[in-house]
Write a protein that binds this DNA or RNA. Structure first.
Lengths: 208, 208
DNA sequence: AATTTCACCGATAGTACTATCGGTGAAATT
DNA sequence: AATTTCACCGATAGTACTATCGGTGAAATT
């Protein structure tokens, strides 16, 4: 196995990616309190001081993690929309839950970081986490509207938003429960999520 | 306003309660990273070193916060059961959501601390947070069973558990949304939660 | 080939915090 | 009244971490 010699900027990029990867692993293993420049740098194979070649400071690293996470989330969301266009309505509703669950299972630490950041006033990721949650909620509400659950008045609009937020929270919780091994069968998780969603939507359908 | 002179142990207890109160306020304002013995002691009006008269160390404080939280949660849960016995079935189901929402709104920082701790491997509250979540899930599942949704086989048992976990997550999320002012009317929140729950329970009722 | 750039290094000053220690005076006990 | 207890204090040693600085050698540029 011969290594193509890397250019200086390629090598730097690689180091940066190693730092981000190491930071995610440390956050997952030891939580935010365990995230020190020494540990991150060591895990990435560089000196502690070299950390500052790549990031202005620790907050800068956290902001970068947020951006990386945003990228992944946006990619997942695009995938949802793409797949939604290819399937029929009933199936579509079910599959719309599979995608975020798979995304969560691929990078659970990301959801955990965002959930933590959302309620941690000191976290530099806080605003980003709140925005992300709002984006997901709005995205979900828009999907429901596309399924025909249009909101004619303010109350229905709020209801649609609450349903989206509640079902999203349930999705996150069950995805983590699946990861923890409590709900081994994803199909069963999807059954429950579809039932939760459909049940709530009856509120709108009945035009109460 | 005359002060009855306090005994030494009464005064100590008061200081301890002040420390715990201050710690909760700081956690809410600045997150776990902002919780230092100096800040807690200062906010409670004592010297930093006196912190150690009341707690072995910082982890001991966090464990105490968990216990206090557990007390409050258990009190709320008892209240749910008591109220449940006094009302009719349909009403009961609705009121069963009001109690946790009110508990969350009274002490939102407690839910946030537990949610944070649950996924923070370094938190001394982690195990407690996981146990609390499990207790709430099982409690909720038992309530549903009491409503007649008995689980005959393994699959139904898992479904009941998933519904309980999912609806609990939705309850937490909507309670925080209510607190943040996005859903000002609690009755509307209850409408949605009841609809979510009933919809999912159709899964079991239909005996699919 | 000579010069410049820069990703990396080790050393270290500075900062923030934890936890201990000896001392004090008022409350509690004798 | 004399003695003991103990909740509190200020001072401080120790620890862990952040961020800077000058130096180095290989890559990039001239």
């Amino acid at each position: 196995m011969t290594h193509t010699p890397l250019t200086r900027s390629e090598a730097k990029d690689l180091t940066r990616r190693r730092l981000i990867r190491a930071a995610l692993a440390i956050l997952d293993k030891e939580g935010e309190a365990g995230l020190t420049t020494l540990k991150v740098a060591k895990a990435a194979g560089i000196a502690q001081s070299t950390f500052y070649v790549h990031f202005k400071d620790k907050q800068d690293l956290l902001r970068s993690l947020g951006d990386e996470g945003g990228e992944r989330l946006r990619r997942s969301m695009r995938e949802v929309r793409r797949q939604a266009r290819e399937t029929h309505d009933a199936e579509r509703h079910r599959e719309a839950f599979r995608i975020p669950i798979e995304a969560i299972c691929r990078h659970p630490e990301l959801l955990r970081i965002l959930q933590r950041a959302r309620h941690d006033p000191a976290s530099p990721l806080r605003e980003f986490a709140i925005e992300t949650a709002a984006a997901y909620r709005d995205h979900h509400a828009a999907d429901l509207a596309a399924l025909g659950y249009t909101a004619d008045d303010e109350r229905d609009r709020r209801r649609l938003e609450m349903i989206a937020e509640g079902v999203n929270a349930a999705t996150n919780a069950l995805a983590l429960g699946h990861l923890e091994g409590r709900y081994p069968d994803v199909e069963e998780v999807l059954d429950v999520l579809v039932a939760l969603s459909n049940g709530a939507l009856r509120l709108l359908r009945s035009g109460a």
